[in-house]
Structures are given as structure tokens and as C-alpha cells.
Amino acid sequence: MTWLEPILLTIVTASTPLLLAALGELICERAGVLNLGVEGMMIIGAVCGFAVAHTTGSMSLGVIAAVVCSMIMSLLFGFLTLHLLCNQVATGLALTILGLGLSGLIGESFIGEPGHKLPQLELPFLSELPYVGRLLFAQDALVYISILGVILVSFVLFRTRLGLIIRATGDNHRSAHALGYSVRKVRYGAVLFGGACSGLAGAYLSLAYTPQWTEGMTAGRGWIALALVVFASWRPLRLLLGAYLFGAVSVLQFHAQAYGIALPSQLMSSLPYIVTIFVLVIISGNKQLTKINTPACLGKPFRPDR
């Protein structure tokens, strides 16, 4: 058991940013908006979180700054796609490019600066349980938030009226509009939630995963988060499963090397994408399933004819 625990711990840290970012994108896509700018929002969150935490010395302020800055990015995306009806794919890609560039500029003076790690919140008694104690109950706040977030999103999406409205908007925005719901308001809300989640994911990277700032430190995690949403066929609980699976795959290569098993790292890092393609092929074979879960209006701009 002693050799397993560190592996499992690294899986948790590798999976949490994926889970957080994908959770936001899931709500966004359920409302019918495809935001390909996750990577860009995430890295802005990472750099702003680190900068504020480093300057003020307050970790909480850092996390809040990450969330707010990513939300501003998502607001820009929302304004372009929901108000000006720009193409969502092109705008999302532009957002990623903007985020990567802007983060380099903001973070220039922070390269190489030592950072602090988010404190681990040890739950009394529970964290002393044998085997699982340290793994489950001695993590930092963002890990708990990511797990609670999955439960909360799942509950809201399938048990509440708000969730019903979000799903309805993504399924058929014309009908939602005809029934008197403001498609634009619902989508703004979803896009902002997506931004906030990406910000948390970014903050996790620069304040917990590797507590420092390096340029391009998101390293494609935003894209994996996007793939994850499809992998989970837009269901939050499957997202949890998928995030930990993808997280495990991405850290396994390091542990494999440590144990002298030679696996080409390129193969391992491409694995999440290969798995996603497989899942896509499998779910597209089942038309009924696809039809129920895929938001039918995903990526389509909506112009109310008023």
C-alpha cells in the first residue's frame, strides 16, 4: 500500500484541474454555447491567481483573482458570441490565443519567483483513517470544491427548475424563447459559470499543482477538458469518472518511468484524445443516446426576432 498512495495522490492532483475546467464547460455546452477558449481562460486564471497571491501573500485573494479574471475573459466571449453573434468556434479559438499571449505578458516578471502551495485542509479524525485517510480527507480546498461541484452541478441540472431551463435552452433555443425564457440571459450565466470554473482550474495549477508561474503552464489541459465533456456525453457524474481516468493516464507515464517501464511518452500523452475519439465513435453509434444527451443547439447563434 505504501507505494500506491503517492501514485493515487498524484492522480488526484492531475485530475482536479481537468475536472474543474470541464465542469464549467459542461454547463456552458448544456446551455448551447461551445466555448473553445477554456485553455485561454484557464491560463489567465493561473497567471492572475499566482500574481495576486504572490504580491499580497494571500492565497484566498489569489484564488478569487483567478476566478474574476477568467470570468472577465468569458464575459468577452459572451459579448462577442451572444450579443454580436460571432461564430463561437472562431471566437473560442481567438480567446485561447489571446489568453496564452496575455498571460505571457502579465506573468513575465513572475517567472522563477517562488510560490506558496495551497494549504491542505485535514478533516479531523477522518484524515487519520488508515489507507484512505490522507488520500480523501487531507486535500486542499479546490479538490473538495471540484468534487462538491460535480454533485452540485448534477443536482442543479437534473433536479431543479434552473437546470431544466438550462437544458431546454441548449436543446431548442427557439422553443425556449417562444415560452418566454431569455436565451441570452441563460447563456450569459452559463458562460460566466464556465469562466469561473476555468479560473479555479487555473488557480489550482499555479497555486497547488506546481506552485509557480511558467509560461504556457496549462499545457493543453483546456483542450483535454473540452474532450472530457464530450467523453462524459454531457453528464456530470461521468465527467468525474472521465477526469480521474484522464488524470490517471497522464501521470501514469511518470510512475511507469520510475519503475523502469519504458512507454513512449508521446503515446501516453496522446491517450486522452485517442480515448475521446473512441468514445465519440461509440456514442454516435447509438443515435437515441446521442439525441437525448447532446445539446441540439450547441454552437448555434440565436437571434431573437423581436
Binding site: A168, N172, S175, K291, A296
Partner: peptide, 30 residues
Amino acid sequence: PSAARKLGIGMVFQHFSLFDSLSVTENIAL
């Protein structure tokens, strides 16, 4: 439309305003 519904005006659309991926109950609840 919600103001109209509050007054007591309902509408049955020619091109239905239904949501394919939702159940009958959910469609009506909306």
C-alpha cells in the same frame, strides 16, 4: 409570453415549441 400566460392566454404553435430531449412532464413544467 409569460405575461400573456399570466393573463390567461395560451398558445399552441404550428411549429411546436417542444424540447426533443426532455420528457413530457419537463416540457410542460417549463
